[in-house]
C-alpha cells in the first residue's frame, strides 16, 4: 500500500482575515482563519495551508496570532507561507505552531535560504512554493528553457514567476524543482498560474513533469473546480497532494464528498 493522497484546503489570509468571501452555516465567524481551519479539520482535511498575502508588518504580526490560535485546536499538519524572507521568519512561524513553512520569492532570490533552513529545522519543515506559467519559446529564452514542450500553437516552456505570480524570472520550473530538492527542500507546492482561478482543472502536464523530476512530495495547486480534477492530478500526474480553495470555500463540495468521489475511483484517501 502507498501513502494516502492528501487533500489540502488553502486559506488566503490578509491582515488576519480570510480574503475570499466564505459563508458557512455553523461557523461563528467565517472570516476568521482559525475558525475556518478548524471547520476543515473537523470535516477531514489532511493538512491546512495558510497563505499570508498581507503587505504590512502589522498583517504579518496578525498572521502569527492566527497560527497560534489555529494550533490550539487543529491537530493535523499546518503549513504557513507568504512573506517568508529569512530564517527568523521560519522560526517565528514554527514557534507559533506551524509544522512546515513555505517559501517562494526569497528562495529564488537567495537559494541558500533553503539549505540554511533545512539544516536548522530539518527538511520536513521546508516547503518551496513554485509558481509556474506556460510561456511561448522565444529566442531570448533558449538559454534558460531547459525543458521544451510543444503543441499545435508551437513550442513553450514552464517559467518561474515570483512576487505572487507577477514577476517572471529566468528560471525553468522543472530545473528549479530539481535544484530545490538538492538544496534540501522537503516538499514542493506547485501552482500553475495559467490554471489558477479557472476552476477547469490542474495543469496536468506541468505537475507530471515536476513529479517525475524530483523524489520529494509534490502538492498540486491551481485550477481545482471539481473532485474529478483531483482524480486527474493523482492518476495522470501522480501528485502526492492536491490543494484547493474555492471548491471548499464556496461550499460547492465538502471535504467528505471530495474524498468519497476519490475513493470510489480507486484513489487511496484517509476517511474520517
Amino acid at each position: 500500500m502507498a501513502l494516502a493522497k492528501r487533500i489540502i484546503p488553502c486559506l488566503d489570509v490578509k491582515d488576519g482575515r480570510v480574503v475570499k468571501g466564505v459563508r458557512f452555516r455553523g461557523l461563528r465567524d467565517a472570516g476568521d482563519p482559525a475558525e475556518l481551519a478548524h471547520h476543515y479539520y473537523r470535516h477531514g482535511a489532511d493538512e491546512i495551508v495558510f497563505l499570508d498575502i498581507s503587505a504590512s508588518p502589522e498583517g504579518r504580526r496578525l498572521m502569527v496570532d492566527v497560527v497560534r490560535r489555529t494550533a490550539e485546536k487543529v491537530f493535523i499538519p499546518m503549513t504557513v507561507g507568504g512573506g517568508i524572507s529569512d530564517v527568523e521568519d521560519f522560526r517565528r512561524a514554527l514557534t507559533a505552531g506551524a509544522d512546515k513553512v513555505s517559501v517562494n520569492t526569497a528562495a529564488v532570490e537567495n537559494p541558500e535560504l533553503i539549505s540554511e533552513a533545512a539544516d536548522i529545522f530539518g527538511s520536513q519543515c521546508v516547503v518551496v512554493a513554485i509558481d509556474a506559467k506556460r510561456e511561448p519559446l522565444k529566442p531570448e529564452h533558449e538559454h534558460v528553457a531547459d525543458h521544451i514542450f510543444s503543441n499545435d500553437d508551437g513550442e513553450y516552456w514552464f517559467r518561474v514567476y515570483v512576487r505572487g505570480g507577477r514577476e517572471p524570472v529566468d528560471l525553468d520550473a522543472i530545473t528549479w524543482a530539481k535544484r530545490v530538492e538538492e538544496l534540501g527542500a522537503g516538499e514542493i507546492l506547485l501552482t500553475s498560474i495559467d490554471a489558477d482561478g479557472t476552476q477547469e482543472g490542474y495543469d496536468i502536464e506541468l505537475t507530471r513533469e515536476v513529479c517525475n523530476a524530483v523524489s520529494i512530495p509534490v502538492i498540486a495547486s491551481g485550477g481545482c473546480g471539481h473532485p474529478k480534477h483531483m482524480v486527474e492530478v493523482f492518476k495522470e500526474a501522480d501528485a502526492d497532494a492536491a490543494l484547493a480553495a474555492s471548491i471548499f470555500h464556496y461550499g460547492k463540495f465538502t471535504i467528505e464528498e471530495v474524498k468519497e468521489h476519490l475513493a470510489e475511483r480507486g484513489v487511496r484517501v484517509r476517511q474520517c
Binding site: L3, A4, Q124, P217
Partner: peptide, 10 residues
C-alpha cells in the same frame, strides 16, 4: 520509496 515517508498511512 520516496523519503522521508511523509503523509498519512495505515
Amino acid at each position: 520509496v520516496k523519503t522521508p515517508h511523509m503523509g498519512w498511512n495505515t
